[in-house]
Design a protein around this nucleic acid. Structure first.
Ligand code: MN
Ligand code: MN
Ligand code: ZN
Ligand code: ZN
Lengths: 139, 139
DNA sequence: TTCTACATTATAATAGTTCTAAACTATTGA
DNA sequence: TCAATAGTTTAGAACTATTATAATGTAGAA
């Protein structure tokens, strides 16, 4: 039907068996031109819209965690209510629209490199991420 | 016993009745010289260490939320499944030690001002926070 | 084809947080 | 001074995102 060989290869090369559930989730996550942010609940809705074969919630959780561990997804810390994930795994920062509860990418070129002039001895930096919270400008 | 008048005044002036539970929580949160980060569970432990009168979990949640709304506490979004709060309400950034799951303040003077060269029309910036994730440097 | 390690699934369990509604209390003002 | 009242505390139930369980299914190897 569609060309899934790229996903089959991707899964296989990272040691994950290319099951039909994982391939479907790959399609939902990675077929579109644009990257996007999602919660597990939103992903479940996207999946059920794009297939008649139901994928269990446990599998969605399992797969998202597997993909995150393999570096195909990033988790974005926003609040502790629920996890937000990002199909954009390149280094970039975010706006969080508190009014509409919406995460928006900031192109890395639009942020001056963040200079941290202090270190913690014995620790190395894994990531530096900026979260810009915004709200409706009523004034 | 101790001088709680500052907290009584603080609570009253913000429209919160100075109950003995709230005054005790103020003591636990604001008596120490240094600011600190905590989860609700850690706060509950600190409270029970410093008093014989039990404060119910619901009251701890209520009070932390009330203090957050009044601006006496900040909530820090960390990739975790529980909320982290901060008694340091001044503008500052954080290291998050993923090995020890520990939040550490970065003095604002140690971070060059973060320049975001893009805006979202109709939205105004509420906060700009940097999270630097670190881990043990084994090399 | 057969075997087995890996994967999926329904469902139960867990855990942080919020809700409920009854009991309690700080504050007001007669 | 002391009821009236609006705000607060509380135990426990409810809620919800996530993880664990364990039985069933399947991909890939031999
Ligand atoms: Mn998380
Ligand atoms: Mn939770
Ligand atoms: Zn993003
Ligand atoms: Zn802090």
């Amino acid at each position: 039907m569609f060309d899934n060989s790229q996903y089959i290869e991707k899964l296989r090369s990272s040691g994950l068996r290319p099951t039909k559930q994982r391939i479907k989730i790959c399609e939902v996550l990675f077929d579109s031109e644009k990257t996007f942010h999602f919660t597990i609940n939103e992903l479940v809705k996207r999946i059920s819209k794009s297939t008649n074969d139901k994928i269990s919630l446990a599998t969605v959780y399992n797969t998202v965690h597997a993909f995150k561990n393999k570096g195909y997804l990033k988790e974005i810390p926003i609040n502790s209510d629920q996890s937000y994930f990002d199909t954009n795994t390149s280094h970039h920062h975010h706006f969080y629209d508190e009014t509409q509860k919406d995460l928006i990418d900031i192109d890395d070129a639009d942020v001056e490199p963040v200079k941290i002039n202090t270190r913690i001895p014995g620790k190395k930096i894994k990531s530096v991420e900026v979260l810009v919270k915004v709200e409706d400008d009523k004034s």
